[in-house]
């Protein structure tokens, strides 16, 4: 953040981009697939907390500096990319027992509401569609940094987001409660200004 008295990170990006004399208050950023991941974590018999990860998410973030509540995000990712580190588990999770990737190969998140909670944080509510089921989820999002990417020479915005779902809400409740219904989501994202 700059040394000026700025009320919100969205206003800061207006200052940063004013030289481009853009008439638009909203800036669109495209997700950098190689630096965007969705990690899920659950509890196994109460013993440990295994994780799995999806990479190569595609989508965009639109930041509206004048009216932050008008910002939005739209993301989709390929279920077939699931990676838990245990090949047999990846296969099992993609099967009809869980994600049924053959029928539902893509998961999506489309924001419906953004409430800014501090200069660098916002609660982003949206429709999460997994396994063909759509439910509202609220993610707590933090803007880690917004700066010119040293290699791409474009503004890069980096985010961390967390959320929680109950997998049974999405029709994936097998083995509850031995394997927890609650699944924590950890999202890391970088988006490049267009």
């Amino acid at each position: 953040m700059t040394k000026f008295a700025i009320k919100s990170l969205f206003a800061a990006s207006v200052f940063a981009l004013v030289a481009s004399a853009s008439a638009f208050a909203a800036d669109t950023y495209k997700l950098d697939a190689g630096h965007t991941s969705v990690t899920f974590q659950y509890t196994h018999f109460g013993f440990s907390h295994p994780t799995g990860k999806f990479m190569n998410a595609v989508g965009s973030v639109t930041l509206d500096d004048a009216t932050p509540a008008n910002s939005s995000v739209e993301v989709s990712f390929d279920i077939n990319g699931i990676n838990t580190g245990v090949a047999a588990l990846d296969t099992h999770l993609k099967s009809a027992d869980f994600f049924d990737a053959a029928k539902f190969p893509t998961a999506t998140f489309k924001s419906t509401k953004v409430v800014q909670t501090s200069a660098t944080t916002a609660d982003v509510t949206g429709d999460l569609t997994i396994h063909g089921v759509t439910k509202p989820v609220t993610l707590k999002v933090t803007l880690n940094k917004k700066d010119v990417h040293p290699m791409m020479k474009k503004v890069d915005a980096g985010f961390t987001a967390t959320g929680t779902i109950n997998r049974s809400d999405f029709g994936m409740g097998n083995y509850v409660p031995a394997v927890s219904d609650q699944v924590d989501l950890y999202i890391e994202a970088e988006a490049i200004a267009q």
Binding site: H35, S37, K145, D147, D156, G158, F159, T160, E188, E190
Partner: peptide
């Protein structure tokens, strides 16, 4: 990663 995100 460059202060932007936290890969794992």
């Amino acid at each position: 990663h460059f202060g932007m995100s936290h890969p794992s």
